[in-house]
Simulated assay, not measured.
Amino acid sequence: MLNADKPLIWGHRGCRSLAPENTLASMELAHAKGADGWELDVVLTRDGIPVLLHDLNLLRTTDAAKHETFRSNPPALPWRFTLEELKTLNAGIFPRRRCGRKDWGTDTSFGVQPIPTLEEALRRSAELGLWVNIEIKDVSNAMPGPMAKEIVLRTLDVVARLKMEESVVVSSFNLAYVAECKQHAPHILTGMLTPHAYTGDAAALAQSIKADAWHPGHKRLTQAAIAHVRNAGLAVTPYTVNDPARMVQLIEWGVSGIVTDNPQDVPDL
């Protein structure tokens, strides 16, 4: 799947340029705009439920600051609250000043968008036939120790219960998480995330943790680095590529796919 003949288009947190990120509405819009799959971010609630959230707090992408439960009990960290409490929040807040857009303000047309659980997101993705890149957020230095150690197994449990092992890629900047995923579920594809500034031997590092793919920041990515990793039998899927000209260049250089906020702007391949 990762090394398909045609590069796969992954909507970053759904269709983040046009809809509130990490919501079912964003995922559905990515599908409508032609994405093959979408990337989402996972953290745990206090009761151990994987939910979709990029930041390690709730303030940017929800209305937590307006809710007494969260205002009177700071900090607004997702693992300090139960799923029932998080479901009272609206994740449908959509500031338009992002992803290269020039219009400012807040789009409220999406209404109330609850924070989805990973299970809800995967079920809807399966209905639409979308691949899913599950990025497990690195909570190793943020969450309480015992809880942080559960995030990989809790994520894998949801994937297994829904029988979606062949439709997901599990990725993380925390390479120990990637290695742990392979240890417990060697049949599930994994991706090694690295920052834009990474210049090491990505093939060797990915192979050391048995990753199937390299997900690099695209800004310093070179044709030679792509070729080196592809020749090692690994997929290369850079993020977050929003300029159509850069998309074309990376595709010509042989990437396996691209992650973009703007699936609506991908040129015809």
Rank of each mutant, 00 (worst) to 15 (best):
A4W: 01
P7T: 07
L8V: 12
L8A: 11
L8I: 15
C15I: 00
S17Q: 11
L18P: 00
E21Y: 00
N22A: 04
L29A: 01
A30Y: 09
A30S: 07
K33D: 04
K33H: 11
E39D: 05
E39V: 10
L40F: 04
L40A: 11
V43T: 06
V43E: 01
L44K: 05
L44H: 07
P50N: 06
L52T: 02
H54K: 07
N57M: 05
R60D: 10
K66G: 01
E68V: 14
T69W: 03
N73A: 14
P74T: 10
P78G: 02
P78L: 06
L83H: 04
L83Y: 10
K87M: 12
A91H: 07
G92N: 05
I93F: 08
I93Y: 09
F94P: 00
F94V: 02
R96N: 03
C99M: 12
R101V: 13
R101T: 10
G105I: 11
T108K: 14
T108C: 05
S109T: 15
G111C: 12
Q113T: 10
T117P: 04
E119K: 15
A121I: 10
R124V: 13
A126E: 10
E127Q: 14
W131P: 00
V139G: 00
N141G: 05
A142H: 11
M143Q: 00
P144T: 03
M147D: 11
E150M: 15
E150N: 02
D157W: 08
V159W: 03
A160R: 15
E166Q: 15
V168W: 10
V169W: 02
S171P: 04
F173M: 09
A176Q: 09
A179C: 00
K182D: 05
H184F: 14
A185F: 12
I188R: 02
G191D: 04
L193H: 03
P195T: 06
H196Q: 01
D201L: 05
A203D: 08
A204K: 13
A204L: 12
L205W: 03
L205I: 09
K210S: 14
A211K: 09
A213D: 07
A213N: 07
K219C: 00
L221D: 12
Q223Y: 07
Q223P: 01
A225S: 14
H228S: 13
V229A: 13
V229W: 09
R230L: 06
A235D: 09
A235I: 09
T237Q: 05
T240A: 12
N242Y: 04
D243K: 14
D243S: 11
R246F: 02
M247D: 11
M247S: 12
M247N: 11
W253P: 00
G254R: 08
S256K: 07
G257T: 04
N262L: 14
Q264F: 12
D268E: 15
